[in-house]
């Protein structure tokens, strides 16, 4: 994977990589991807992908409220608040 692809990937992942990290990760990611490329040797024709292992049953939850009354406690974990709002710097 070249630096350009790595930069796009890092942006999608919301990670900032400085020049040093770019180099380290480029090498590490490339090595791993090369290893992943071994999978190309496998004949996968006719194999269905396993998207969900061992989930053969329909599952659905009853439409019933589950009151844990945790909202105040959850807000305590927010790094910044104004009243009951969670605050972040303006998006712009």
């Amino acid at each position: 994977m070249d630096i350009h692809e790595l930069r796009i990937t890092a942006e999608l992942a919301m990670l900032d990589l400085d020049e040093r990290e770019m180099k380290v990760f480029e090498a590490e990611v490339s090595k791993t991807l090369e290893y992943f490329a071994q999978m190309n040797a496998v004949d996968v024709d006719g194999l269905e992908p396993t998207t969900h292992v061992l989930m053969e049953e329909n599952r659905a939850r009853e439409d019933r409220t589950r009151d844990e009354n945790l909202s105040d406690r959850l807000l305590e974990e927010a790094p910044e608040r104004q009243g009951r709002h969670i605050v972040i710097p303006n998006v712009l």
Partner: peptide, 27 residues
């Protein structure tokens, strides 16, 4: 960070079939 980057990459369009899709079949 390394694993997040790898995982982001193998799911990207254009690469997903080759990596993630194939891995699911090997599974």
């Amino acid at each position: 960070k390394l694993r997040i980057l790898l995982g982001t990459y193998v799911l990207r369009s254009g690469f997903q079939d080759q990596y993630y899709g194939r891995a699911q079949k090997i599974r």
